[in-house]
Design a protein around this nucleic acid. Structure first.
Length: 670
RNA sequence: GCUCCCGUAGCUCAGCCGGAUAGAGCAACAGCCUUCUAAGCUGUGGGCCGCAGGUUCGAGUCCUGCCGGGGGCGCCA
């Protein structure tokens, strides 16, 4: 009997009682968690809804408390329900049959796979995230994107979905072109010279993406005063897009090396991909032509003969204005015949949904330490052996920052116009606010600010200016700080072990830091807060789990098992223990642990990983309280000891599963 | 100009479909290690939920207006 099953049974009872007493069936019955555990395990504010419905139906004004009275008996009769109280202005507060409930759920999986419910086909969804321009190292803003996307994918998997993760590589865009301009026209290097440089960097312990970061900044600065250099940009861009020439070959090397570097950075954080679709293939495999043809045929876009947009192919896009509605058309094909980014994006989105009628070729790109392979798109078939099936997702989630809401809206509308049966709900823009720097953090990074900038609430990061906190730098700092702490606590541990633990702590700190904010909150990056291991942090949650595990390590040393303790409790024998007011925290611990499934569902429905992060923190906090109040293994009363062990076991399993869903591991010790 | 988001404790943020006495963390102050790990725990102080109307039995939450901050509105990506 899970929480959800009991609550559903209660809902049915309420509907029955309500129909009998008032001739009205409430449609949606909300269940909420009472503000204090003493008030109950679950509360139904349904009497308020009913009061309104009765008034609307018959004009009769009824007191919500009286309505609640009419529902009590039905709810009390539901199996698993212990006690029902009417509280406040008319809340129906339900207490579960606690002992029975605990005994029944003692061995329950914290995250039951929900696809086991009997869905006929396991539908696949795609999540696109990261998508960093492959011309420089990733910074903290990119990491927010990746952590959000990766965690959301884990949440979807935890709720039973099959998920494919894509990282789009814009290898033929202006940003790559800029770095190529730098290599060729500032540094005078050809492909061989860049390869040699790459080797030199490797030997010196430096990375290619960091080098490109600086070069990109240099190019950005040079453009400001050097018009000749700036003219090279479009020339280079054109050559890269066209392909099959020396410049394109050089650009491909630069982009590929950056993708490798970024893949390694993300792997440090436990972020992995299934496929890297590249813009060059979208171009050369004529995805756009195919999409264009369909859009023309379906009349989704039209040619503009005269006026401001003469010679362009445009898609009508309605914009809502205050009073009168006017149409602005989004240009997909320029008058010179080239396709805009949005146009290419529509073709790509169609492929993701499986409605384009074309596919990429593929080859393995990178192998992770455990052997899992990341695939990349390719021009030619070439690859022998079995090929995974990519794309064709039921729903496509695009993790892209909120500044791109407008073009994403066009992509969604465009695709829906091409395939009305799939509609707009097949494309989800998972929007999030940017990570910016506090003026103090920018100065800490060595940037000179104007007086005007200093007064601003935050400063936007800029790859062009080289202004940003590089991901690897931050992870390095976190690891170094964590290692100092680990060393202080475990001076006898092997250096390898210490480093491994420090790494897990660093990842936990960074991921949690980025996940505790809701998506539409601008994160103003602050070093002190990001580097903290105390309070509401990943480390706090890990620490609780480590403590919990140490209880069971000690238990196992005595040869005792959790299963033996589960068998010691039957349910009805726990009434005395659980009804003791001094033991409310035992029950709260159990109930909080068993709500993980609910937290994951909420996070998935709202597409908001922060919900799960908050739940995990709350779970860890609840455990610390429980741990502090009870001597678990030292408890003299046998039945109470068994209860404490069973509940602590529920807590550590939920905590571990919750953290894993956030992409955070539990260290051996801390 | 049009449009979207934000404004909650000194600071950084939660607050579910409108519901019970508005919650965390940090910072400040006072305590707690003979114990299953003190990266922890307990306590104290701190609030015109930007302002003004409205809807409602009930508003931090919904509606309107205003003020303040940020984003987006390209034949860039």
């Amino acid at each position: 009997m899970t929480i959800e099953q009991i609550n559903d049974a209660i809902r049915k009872a309420i509907i029955g009682s309500s129909r009998a007493a008032f001739g009205i069936e409430p449609t949606q019955i909300a269940a909420e968690i009472p503000p204090k555990p003493e008030l109950g395990d679950v509360a139904f504010p349904v009497a308020f809804e009913l009061a309104k419905a009765i008034k609307n139906a018959s004009g009769e004004k009824k007191n919500p408390r009286d309505i609640a009275v009419a529902l009590v008996n039905g709810v009390s009769a539901v199996p698993g329900v212990g006690n029902v109280e009417i509280a406040g202005a008319g809340y129906l507060n339900v207490f579960y049959e606690r002992g029975q409930f605990l005994a029944a759920n003692a061995a329950a999986e914290p995250l039951p796979r929900q696809d086991a419910k009997g869905e006929a086909t396991a539908s696949k969804v795609c999540v696109e995230h990261t998508s960093v321009n492959p011309n420089k190292a990733a910074h903290i803003g990119h990491v927010r994107n990746s952590v959000l996307g990766d965690t959301f994918a884990r949440i979807l998997r935890a709720s039973g979905k099959t998920v494919e993760i894509q990282n789009y590589i814009d290898n033929t865009g202006v940003q790559v072109a800029d770095v190529v301009v730098g290599f060729i026209y500032i540094e005078g290097r050809d492909l061989e010279a860049i390869k040699a440089l790459d080797e030199e960097l490797k030997a010196a312990g430096r990375t290619f993406d960091y080098y490109c970061w600086d070069l990109y900044t240099q190019v950005g600065q040079a453009y400001l005063s050097d018009d000749e250099l700036k003219a090279k940009r479009s020339e280079v861009l054109h050559l890269i897009e066209e392909g099959g020439n020396k410049t394109a070959e050089l650009a491909d090397y630069v982009a590929t090396r950056n993708v490798e570097c970024i893949t390694e950075t993300m792997e440090r954080l436990g972020i992995r991909y299934d496929l890297l679709p590249r813009e060059s293939e979208i171009l050369h495999l004529h995805f756009w032509d195919k999409a264009f043809e369909q859009m023309k045929r379906l009349g989704v876009i039209h040619y503009v003969a005269d006026g401001k947009q003469a010679g362009c192919w445009v898609m009508p896009f309605e914009e809502h204005t205050g009073t009168d509605e006017h149409e602005t058309d989004k240009i997909l094909v320029r008058s010179n015949g080239t396709v805009t980014y949005t146009g290419k994006d529509i073709a790509y989105q169609m492929w993701k949904l499986g409605i384009l009628g074309l596919d990429f070729n593929y080859r393995p790109f990178y192998r992770y330490s455990d052997g899992k392979e990341v695939w990349i798109t390719a021009l030619e078939p070439g690859h022998d052996g079995p090929l995974p099936r990519f794309g064709g997702g039921e729903v496509i989630y695009n993790v892209i920052d909120t500044r791109q809401s407008y073009p994403q809206e066009i992509v969604k509308k465009g695709v829906a116009a091409i395939s009305p049966e799939r509609g707009e709900q097949a494309s989800v823009h998972l929007a999030y606010e940017m990570v910016a720097l506090s003026p103090a953090a920018a100065e800490e990074l060595g940037f000179e600010l104007s007086d005007e900038d200093r007064k601003r609430p935050f400063i936007e990061m800029s790859g062009r200016k080289g202004l940003g906190v590089k991901a690897d730098d931050l992870i390095d700092r976190l690891e170094a700080n964590a290692e100092i702490e680990v060393e202080a606590r475990h001076p006898n541990a092997e250096p390898d072990v210490r480093r491994a633990i420090a790494h897990q702590i660093a990842v936990g700190a960074l991921r949690y830091f980025l996940l505790k904010f809701t998506r539409n909150t601008v994160i103003v990056f602050d070093f002190k807060e990001a580097l903290s291991f105390e309070g509401e942090t990943g480390c706090f949650c890990q620490y609780s789990a480590v403590r919990a595990n140490s209880i069971f390590r000690k238990l196992e040393e005595t040869g005792e098992t959790v299963q033996q303790n589960r068998q010691k409790i039957t349910g009805s024998d726990l009434t005395d223990i659980l009804s003791d007011p001094g033991n409310v925290d035992i029950w709260t611990m159990a109930l909080t642990s068993l709500r993980l499934d609910e937290a994951v569902t909420q996070a998935a429905n709202a597409a908001e990983p922060a919900i799960l992060a908050k739940y995990t923190f709350n779970l860890a906090k609840t455990f610390n309280l429980f741990y502090h109040h009870h001597k678990i293994l030292g408890e003299p009363d046998e039945l109470k000891r068994a209860t404490l062990i069973v509940v602590a076991d529920l807590a550590r399993r939920s905590l571990t599963a919750a953290l894993a869903t956030l992409g955070i591991e539990v260290p051996e010790r801390m």
